[in-house]
């Protein structure tokens, strides 16, 4: 869990305040705020949730409950790169199972897991509206469709590379 020194908390609080100011200090902006927090911090931490609750004047319960409801909001740290594999019927029928196995083979983790170096989080998700190019995955904001098992290593390569070149 958060091993939070006060300095970090102050930073986190300031970030939250800035985002809340930007989105608007009302409860109905909770989801935009969570989106923004995630964008700037990578995930929505417990202290951020408490601060958001305090800023919006709503219960921590509501913030936590809402954050944990949506699959695009993370309340725990996740990998640097998030691989989302669609496993809804159109992709499933076109072989998303094989793609899943290929990704697992390439990065060594099952859906729902994060690599030990923190580079990849792999998850299966519901339809992303890419049925026309099934099977499809999204890596971060990038979309890859009409996938074949053979294509996976080369697609993933640049995310490995990116990690190393920029020295994380």
């Amino acid at each position: 869990m958060e091993s939070c020194n006060s300095n970090c908390c102050v930073q986190c609080d300031a970030e939250v305040v800035a985002i809340v100011d930007k989105c608007g200090r009302t409860e109905c902006n909770l989801i935009p705020i969570l989106h923004q927090l995630q964008r700037s911090m990578g995930y929505v931490s417990n202290e951020a949730m408490e601060k958001v609750a305090a800023e919006l004047g709503i219960s921590v319960a509501q913030v936590h409950g809402t954050a944990t409801f949506y699959s695009l909001i993370y309340t725990k740290p996740h990998g640097k790169n998030v691989i989302r594999l669609c496993d809804s019927p159109p992709c499933h029928l076109q072989g998303s199972g094989a793609i899943r196995d290929a990704i697992t083979k390439a990065i060594g983790i099952e859906p729902g897991e994060t690599t030990s170096d923190g580079n990849f989080t792999f998850e299966t998700v519901s339809c992303m509206g890419l049925c026309g190019v099934a099977p499809a995955i999204m890596i971060n904001d990038d979309v890859y469709g009409n996938l074949t098992v053979d294509a996976i290593p080369s697609i993933l390569e640049k995310y490995f590379a990116c990690c190393c070149k920029e020295g994380c």
């Binding site: 109905c28 909770l30 989801i31 989106h35 409801f69 949506y70 699959s71 695009l72």
Partner: peptide, 26 residues
């Protein structure tokens, strides 16, 4: 524009409203 946060249920009209209001999409 209100950007959803990943929940199919929000296609259900009342869940969608709950989501806009800042709640769980129930």
């Amino acid at each position: 524009v209100f950007k959803g946060a990943g929940a199919y249920i929000c296609g259900e009209e009342t869940a969608l409203l709950a989501s806009i209001e800042g709640f769980r999409g129930e």
